[in-house]
Write a protein that binds this DNA or RNA. Structure first.
Lengths: 163, 163
DNA sequence: TTTGAAAGTTCGCGCCT
DNA sequence: AGGCGCGAACTTTCAAA
């Protein structure tokens, strides 16, 4: 588990910005041959730094115009792991974070209509181990999943030592 | 602004799962020639259905091990649009949602350490137009940005009619 | 939408530093 | 180790039908 060096960071930044750049282009951007970049990207993938490449779709264009953030409280005997698993089975739940505070999870839900939201919330509330939900409706997404700028990528070791 | 048809939906699903598939492969998956797929994907891009392709990076491996969800309250004279713009200028703020409720925004922040989180929160609180922040620290990310299953993609018109 | 063909890309391998 | 260049196979990206 080696360090991610400076060239890797620039490769990562480029791939976060455009996940479909060719290795040839990437090489031009970072000043390496296509084969060298190919090799490095392969290593970043197998070491788990890059976990995948995904097209991002405007949810409204595919009938998912309603987004909500939902806090999930466990019941007294609620098992955190089991609830997490159940949440993972709900297709409307796009992201799931275990959080500090009196809620066990905050999840992001995407559905087509408020009708559907009502349905989905009912389903979440009825999951084994869940006592309460608290829903915040998203009115508009200003920006989302923005690639963090390059200068914010660092070697984890350096980060921990240096502050 | 035409409808997204069934083949488009399958193309979208494939590209959400693997944003780097070749058009040739895509064509095999959906039963079309590479050029036909190429044409369709180009159309999906220019009509704003597909907004981009991004590599997904494990934040921990690039020194961003701390995530928090932060609610932002406006001060009495706080201008929503201006605050949104300011939030967009903070590189630690990865996503920003305008929400219903007594907070104007909920943002997702990523930093390297809790020290840095303290710093970033101080900065957010001091932004023109912001009165309060309320921070929820993420303990673990169970899953994030999961591609919604295909059966959840639909023609927006059909969705609205059909429920 | 398909075919066809030129230009460009991927990706393994061996050599070089 | 890691980068480079080669080369065969494959992919992209046109135009024509």
């Amino acid at each position: 588990m080696p360090g991610v060096d400076d060239v890797d960071r620039r490769i990562i930044a480029a791939l976060r910005t455009n996940g479909r750049v060719t290795y040839a282009d990437l090489g031009r951007q970072v000043g390496l041959s296509a084969s060298a970049v190919h090799e490095r990207v392969g290593k970043l993938e197998t070491t788990g730094v890059i976990t995948g490449y995904h097209a991002v779709v405007d949810p409204r264009t595919v009938g998912l115009g309603v987004t909500a953030l939902v806090g999930i409280q466990l019941s007294d005997n609620g098992e955190q792991e089991e609830v997490a698993t159940s949440l993972g089975r709900q297709p409307e739940v796009e992201s799931c974070y275990a959080v500090a505070g009196d809620e066990a999870f905050i999840v992001k839900v995407r559905v087509g209509t408020v009708d559907e939201l009502e349905h989905t919330l009912g389903r979440l509330r009825r999951l084994e181990g869940v006592s309460r939900t608290r829903t915040t409706v998203v009115l508009s997404t200003r920006f989302e999943g923005r690639p963090n700028p390059v200068e914010h990528y660092g070697d984890p070791d350096v980060e921990q030592a240096g502050r």
